[in-house]
Design a protein around this nucleic acid. Structure first.
Lengths: 204, 204
DNA sequence: AAGGTAACTGAACAAGCGTTCAATAGAAAG
DNA sequence: CTTTCTATTGAACGCTTGTTCAGTTACCTT
């Protein structure tokens, strides 16, 4: 049969992305077959090629749109803060944790499947990642300039902070020992330590 | 032909580990075939089964022996330090960086291929990883007890430090901007920040 | 009701997969 | 030189892979 009765017309394209994200995250790009993805969508394998030219492009589109959403979301969020570096850094840390905990699967893929991208696709994603790192670097640089942060090396601090924040995704579980608000609070404190922020512990 | 002329008798077993480590790290476990590994060793695919019962066990043995070497190496190294928490933490940080930069491929596999392990194999590796995390947690706990570290949450600090240190492996290159001694120095400073060490900046 | 169109199936393709094993080659032992 | 033994080959096994496509189904438009 074709086109499930009535309902929405643009469902399957999005369904494919959702199914692929789930399966790639769970088992890895190379370990998942187009037939498995098709089964998850509820369709035969051939039908997938109406929505993606091939498996590689499917992975690439997943990663690229995830990174783009991340960049766009920070673009919006960063407007909410004054240009006080400390407030900006707090905003970034909280944003990063919240955004990444909301999309565990896509984040996982974006970090683990880089080696399965073709050279050209890889460099696109690498550029997006660098753009995101630059968002943080800019904040840190401003803080150092204002004398409120104390950093030996800007680049390494950027890497460190992003690595420790993204690491949350590997252990955090909903309804675990800590809720995400508490996690934000604790990590904010540690990040302030990394950047050698003078007034580290907040007044409350 | 069989048994290449003279030379060493126990070569191929180790060669297999080396070849598999290299290829798994480069392309991922699922994306590498036994025939590719065999070609890297310089042998036909069937011959590999003289040295491993199957592909899954090959991966597992790689990961388990890597983790065991890590644990053993710290067991030895940690003897070199007094029980001053600050000295111990410095020792741990320097050890971690040095050890991990010497085995980029094995480290990469140990972090990326967990999902390709059978349930039982996974729990073995997970235990080893936890044992390593405990080494750091013990140091931090002692430091908090001695009043020299200031931490909101012990477990999260452990995760943070390990994540930021292991992150070095993703960007460090020999003959890059910084040599590994400098990297150790900078990360030590940032780690001292994370643990809220009172006398953060060292005298030199 | 008829015709058009977009969505989807199901079979097929060549290639590659992990793994097994009878046959063989080459060194060691007698 | 012959036998023994071990390491290795190379072909074969059944199965799965990504991808294509002629054919079919179900809806929309007229």
């Amino acid at each position: 049969m074709a086109r499930k009765t009535g309902s929405s017309g643009e469902k399957t394209a999005r369904d494919l992305q959702i199914a692929a994200t789930k399966l790639f995250a769970r088992h890895g790009y190379a370990a998942v077959s187009m037939r498995q993805i098709a089964a998850e969508v509820g369709v035969q394998a051939g039908a997938l090629y109406l929505y993606t030219p091939d498996k590689q492009t499917l992975l690439f589109d997943l990663m690229r749109s995830h990174m783009q959403e991340l960049l766009d979301a920070w673009e919006v969020e960063s407007g909410n803060f004054s240009d006080d570096p400390k407030a900006l850094l707090e905003g970034f840390v909280r944003f990063h944790i919240r955004f990444h905990l909301k999309r565990v699967d896509a984040v996982f893929i974006a970090y683990m499947e880089l080696r399965n991208l073709s050279d050209q696709n890889f460099s696109t994603i690498a550029n997006q990642r660098q753009a995101y790192e630059n968002c943080l670097s800019k904040i840190l640089k401003a803080g150092v300039g204002a004398g409120v942060f104390d950093l030996v090396d800007l680049k390494l601090a950027t890497f460190s902070i992003i690595a420790m924040l993204t690491g949350i995704n590997t252990w955090f579980r909903d309804r675990g020992r800590l809720d995400s608000e508490t996690v934000e609070h604790i990590y904010l404190d540690m990040v302030m330590g990394v950047v050698g922020c003078k007034s580290r512990r907040r007044p409350d």
